[in-house]
Design a protein around this nucleic acid. Structure first.
Lengths: 268, 268
DNA sequence: CCTCGACCTTCCCCGGGGGAGAGGGTGCAC
DNA sequence: GTGCACCCTCTCCCCCGGGGAAGGTCGAGG
C-alpha cells in the first residue's frame, strides 16, 4: 500500500503536525475527507495534495474558529466567499480583543482603590410618552440589536424631546436574555416599522450617572445598588438607562454619560 | 430577613449581573462564600461589601482565568502577590495574542497562492560529535525549555564548530510531548550541568531551508514531506533542525534561516 | 505462522456553565 | 388561608475540541 503520494493517517499526521486523533475527528466532522477509505479495513488514506487543506484547517483552529465554521469556509466555492467568511471571523477576533482590553483596564481600576464616591439621587418620575422599539434579546446580541433599533428609531422620530434611553429586564443579565426596550421621548405618537408609541409608567428611581465606556457599567450598578440597600430600599427592575452623552455625540468614550435609574420601593 | 445591607442570592445577582446559578457555583467552588448561610433553609445571604469581590471575579472570568486561578488570586493575602498573579495572566494573554497574530499572518499567506518552489536536497550526513541537552518535553513548553537549554549549552561550549540544532521526536507533534535534543557540534566532549556529549548517528536526510519565523514552519514541513513522498521515499523521525540564522543572530524574523533535515529511507 | 505496530471504533473525561425538572421550604401580600 | 414569587437541594443532559484508554483488526516482516 505504498503507491506514490498516498499516505496512511500516521504519515499524514507527521507531515501536518496534527494528531491522528484530530485527523479522525476532522473526518467525522466532514472537514477533511480522506482521499480513500478502505472499505474492508476502514483505514483512511490521504494524499499529499491534502496537506495544504490540513494546514488551513490548522490555522483556523488556532484562531478558535469552530469546526462547523471551518467547514463552511472550506465548502464555500469561490475564493471571494471564502475571504469574506475569514474576514468576518477576524472581525470577531478584533471585537473579542477589544473586550479583553476593556476587561483588563476595568480590572486594573477595580484592583486600584478608586474611592470616588458616587452621587445618587432619589427621583420621582412621571409617566412619559415615548416612541419605542422592543424585543426579547439575548445578552450577547444586545449591542448589535441596539444599534439597529436606535437607527430605526432616529429615522422615525423627527423631533425627539429628549435623549434616547433603554429599559432592561433583570433577566437579561441573570438569565442571559430578556425584554429590552429602546425609546426616545416624543410629543406626538409615532408608529413606523418596529417603532410603536409607548407609555413609561411613573416610578420612583434611584439615579446615578455612569461616566465613560460601558465596560465598567456593572461597577456603577453595584455602587448604586449598595446605596439603595443602605437606604433600606430595594430595587425592582426593569432598570432604565438614559444616554445623556453617547457614541452619537462624541467618539471619545471617556466623555460618555449614562444615567442609570433603578426603580426602588421601600422595605420594612 | 431584610436587615440593611443583607441580600438574597437573587438580589445579589441583580446587583452584580451574575446569574444565580453562577453564584451558587462560585460558592461551591470556594470563590465567593456567602456572608451567611441559613442552616435551616440553606438560603445564601450576601452583603453589599461582597459586590466588589464579585466584580473582580467577573472581570477575571471575562479574561478566561480558570476558577482555580481566580481562587488563588483572591486567596493571596497582600495586594503585591495578587498583582503578580494577575500580571502573570496578562502575560499569558499577551503571548496568546502573539500566537493569534502569527496565525492570522500565516493564514493570509496560505490563502494567497504562494507558488515559490522549495529547494530540497538529499544529503548523506556522517555521524557527528555534539554537546547536547536532552529531555522529554511537552509541545506547549518547548519554546521556553529550548530557551533555557540553549543558554546553558552556549555557556558550556566555549568554541562550537557549527550552528546550534535540535532533534524532535515525531511524538512531540502527534502526541503533544516527546523527546527533544538541543545541541551544538564540538571538537572536544563537553559535560557540565545538563550538557552531555552525544553522537548524532549517520543518516540520509532530505533537507530544505525554511525562511522566516517559525509560525509557518509546518508549511515547509508539508512541502518537504510532499517532495519526499514524490521521490518514493518515506520519512522516519526524529527530524533535525539546524538554526543557520536565528534570533541570536538578528532580531528580524524575516531573515531567519532554519534547515530542516528529515531522515528518509527507500520504499518498495 | 507469529508478532508487532499501526490502525480501527467506542466510551469516558475536562471546564464553566446553561437548561430542565422534581420535591420542598420561605416570606409576603391579599 | 391561599396564592405566588422566590429560594433550597438534587439529578440529568448539553455545548466544544480534543485527550486517554480499552479492546479488536489489519498488514508487513521474519
Amino acid at each position: 500500500m505504498h503507491s506514490a503520494g498516498v499516505l496512511t493517517i500516521g504519515e499524514f499526521a507527521r507531515l501536518t503536525h496534527l494528531s491522528v486523533r484530530t485527523l479522525r475527528r476532522y473526518h467525522d466532522a466532514g472537514l477533511l475527507e480522506p482521499a480513500r477509505v478502505d472499505p474492508a479495513s476502514g483505514y483512511r488514506y490521504y494524499t499529499v495534495e491534502q496537506i495544504p487543506t490540513a494546514q488551513v484547517i490548522h490555522r483556523l483552529r488556532e484562531l478558535d474558529v469552530p469546526l462547523a465554521d471551518v467547514r463552511r469556509i472550506l465548502d464555500s466555492p469561490d475564493p471571494q466567499a471564502r475571504g469574506r467568511l475569514v474576514a468576518e471571523h477576524l472581525r470577531r477576533l478584533e471585537a473579542e480583543l477589544d473586550r479583553t482590553r476593556a476587561a483588563v483596564a476595568s480590572l486594573r481600576r477595580l484592583l486600584d482603590p478608586a474611592p470616588a464616591a458616587l452621587d445618587v439621587e432619589l427621583r420621582r418620575v412621571p409617566a412619559t410618552e415615548v416612541a419605542a422599539v422592543a424585543a426579547e434579546v439575548a445578552l450577547t446580541d444586545v449591542l448589535s440589536w441596539y444599534a439597529g433599533a436606535v437607527a430605526e428609531l432616529d429615522a422615525a422620530v423627527p423631533e425627539p424631546t429628549g435623549p434616547p434611553g433603554g429599559l432592561y429586564d433583570d433577566a437579561l443579565f441573570t438569565a442571559g436574555r430578556g425584554h429590552v426596550v429602546v425609546h426616545r421621548p416624543t410629543a406626538e405618537p409615532v408608529r413606523a416599522g418596529r417603532v410603536r408609541p409607548m407609555t413609561l409608567p411613573a416610578v420612583e428611581l434611584a439615579v446615578a450617572t455612569h461616566v465613560g465606556a460601558h465596560d465598567d457599567i456593572d461597577v456603577t450598578y453595584g455602587e448604586l445598588g449598595t446605596w439603595v440597600v443602605g437606604q433600606t430600599l430595594a430595587v425592582a427592575g426593569p432598570v432604565r438607562e438614559t444616554y445623556l452623552v453617547g457614541p452619537r455625540d462624541t467618539p471619545d468614550p471617556a466623555a460618555w454619560r449614562t444615567e442609570i435609574g433603578w426603580p426602588v420601593f421601600r422595605v420594612g
